[in-house]
């Protein structure tokens, strides 16, 4: 099957659920952020250079979760296609928490604000964290527009996941520096 049709050449796109919407719509902003985040996580994994397969596997699992989030965001909650989707479950949030706690246990205590950077993998993880927060903001805008229509619970789970993932990515950034024997770069105002 071919990829392109040109149907988006006039500034509209088709949702997975079939509706045509402007590419500047909040929904497109939201799943665009998820796409960006997923891609940046690819850069985090790639920059680990194959030395830490467990961390890379964890990142790939998160990317897989984000594919589900992206599909959910690109589907109108009122449409028949919504029922077909694999949704994010609370267990995914618990997994993030467990893995975050495990990494955090290996890190020195945080002594203040840190500057994003250090090893390349850590720098990418910080970028991922900020894009994750932007995605979260766009999802909130969507939830605000339809939470009263009965589809809120799936979106609340997405919001919980995004909130926890941002925290996870902060810890991951520090952990990447730790793996490469680099210290946190402390902010000295």
């Amino acid at each position: 099957m071919k990829i392109y049709t040109g149907g988006g050449d006039r500034g509209k796109t088709s949702l997975f659920s079939g509706e045509r919407i402007a590419k500047s719509h909040d929904r497109v902003e939201a799943y665009g952020d998820i796409d960006e985040l997923c891609s940046i996580l690819g850069a985090v994994a790639a920059s680990l250079g194959g030395k830490y397969p467990k961390v890379e596997a964890e990142i790939h699992r998160i990317q897989s979760d984000l594919m589900k989030v992206g599909a959910l965001l690109s589907t109108s909650p009122d449409a028949p296609a919504f029922a077909e989707l694999e949704k994010i479950e609370e267990s995914s949030v618990r997994t993030l928490e467990a893995n975050m706690d495990r990494m955090d246990a290996d890190l020195p205590p945080l002594r203040g604000f840190i500057l994003p950077g250090g090893d390349m993998s850590a720098a990418w993880a910080h970028i991922a964290r900020t894009v994750c927060r932007r995605a979260e903001r766009h999802v909130i805008a969507l939830v605000d527009s339809f939470a009263d229509r009965g589809h809120g619970s799936d979106y609340w789970k997405v919001l919980a996941y995004m909130n926890r993932l941002s925290d996870y990515l902060f810890v991951l950034a520090r952990y990447c520096n730790h793996l490469s024997d680099r210290s946190d770069i402390l902010w000295k105002p």
């Binding site: 099957m1 071919k2 990829i3 049709t5 149907g7 079939g18 509706e19 045509r20």
Partner: peptide
């Protein structure tokens, strides 16, 4: 307000 589902064949 219409929905469109597509499959590109060739």
């Amino acid at each position: 307000g219409a929905r469109i589902y597509t499959e590109v064949f060739y």
